[in-house]
């Protein structure tokens, strides 16, 4: 059973099952997330707070996974996109006195548009992984400086207190937990539905070989932009809801080294492109972070050590690694035909 589940999580595995069966892993995740507070940490506000942070990061990570994991666009602006959601929520609801949910929606929309435009530029100029990474990193840093510079609007480095914030959520941590648990589950459903649709097929093809995908009739550029829009919307929505539930944001909340680095580590560690990888990555990461927190000053050092070790050791991610372990006995080690160029001719060619 475990083997089956793990196999189905393998990154890049085409999801042959259709309809409801494809959503089974998500349903399982939803159940686990739902029962965690009552059976484990519900009574500790501190632990619940940690769980919320984990879920927030998992949400960012799923969005990033749609963009980078599915279509290989290295978006180093997760923090900035989340910041767009967060600040839009704050400014539209406080300064423009719109209802909070309108602010969140507008933030989501703007993040989606910005992500789409960045992707469109990258696609039009055929920027590879590294140039897309640099372009989006440059955007992140510029956004950060704008937040700091436009003091009248954003409050600069002092930050912004949301008048419209959900005080109830800030007090009742379990409520906040369920808000973000629901968000993660919804994102996972969306991710799974994309995976099982023709869009998912297009993603797998273009991730393997762009030219071959084009020759197959796949509009690689369009699917890239599509992924960027969907992923950025997820990230913007998460940022907006975070601002709404926490009640206080400042530029550091969404800084590159606060968000992007962690999200990148979580997703790559969890397994690029896999369904539950981002969530597992976020969970493991937060757990390790907790273990390290008692180490005080040396924490950041250990953290760096961990990143290096993880990437050199688990290059292809946790979920795929587990998948390979689970798969080993299932698929015979030797294929039917040896892979040589002068192997036997194809059977019944005529």
């Amino acid at each position: 059973m475990v083997v089956r589940v793990v196999r189905s999580l393998r990154s890049g595995t085409p999801v042959a099952r259709s309809g409801l069966a494809a959503l089974l892993p998500v349903a399982g995740t939803a159940v686990v997330l739902a029962v965690l507070p009552p059976i484990w940490f519900g009574r500790s506000t501190y632990t619940t707070g940690l769980a919320i942070i984990t879920l927030v990061f998992a949400s960012y990570a799923v969005g990033f996974n749609v963009i980078f994991g599915s279509t290989s666009q290295l978006f180093l602006c997760v923090g900035a996109l989340a910041g767009i959601g967060g600040y839009a929520t704050a400014l539209f609801s406080d300064s423009a006195s719109l209802p909070v949910f309108v602010g969140v929606l507008l933030g989501t929309l703007i993040a989606a548009i910005v992500g789409g435009v960045l992707s469109w530029i990258a696609v039009r100029r055929s920027l590879g992984v590294i140039f897309t990474g640099i372009l989006t990193l440059v955007f992140s840093l510029a956004f950060q400086n704008l937040l700091l510079g436009q003091r009248q609007l954003t409050g600069g480095s002092t930050g912004h207190e949301l008048k419209a914030a959900a005080t109830t959520l800030a007090d009742d941590r379990v409520g906040g937990y369920y808000l973000f648990a629901a968000l993660v589950v919804i994102f996972l459903i969306v991710f799974r539905l994309i995976q099982t649709s023709h869009v998912g097929w297009a993603f797998r093809a273009l991730r393997d070989d762009e030219t071959a995908a084009e020759l197959t009739g796949i509009d690689v550029s369009r699917y890239r932009v599509y992924a960027a829009v969907v992923g950025s919307a997820m990230i913007g929505l998460t940022g907006g809801l975070y601002a709404y539930s926490d009640g206080f944001i400042n530029p550091t909340t969404f800084a590159f080294n606060q968000i992007d680095v962690l999200v990148l580590v979580m997703v790559v560690f969890g397994g690029l492109g896999s369904l539950l990888g981002p969530l597992l990555g976020a969970g493991v990461f937060e757990a390790v972070d907790q273990l390290l927190s008692s180490s005080g000053q040396i924490r950041e050092f250990l953290y760096g050590l961990m990143i290096v070790a993880l990437f050199l050791g688990f290059r292809r991610g946790l979920v795929p690694a587990l998948g390979r372990l689970a798969r080993r006995p299932v698929v015979p080690a030797s294929p039917l035909q040896p892979r040589t160029d002068d192997g036997p001719a194809v059977p019944s060619a005529t």
Partner: peptide
Amino acid sequence: LGLLVTLGVAFLIEGLLNW
């Protein structure tokens, strides 16, 4: 991989100095 590993090293050095 180069990007990720050097990122980790950056944390490592910064952490060391900060400590």
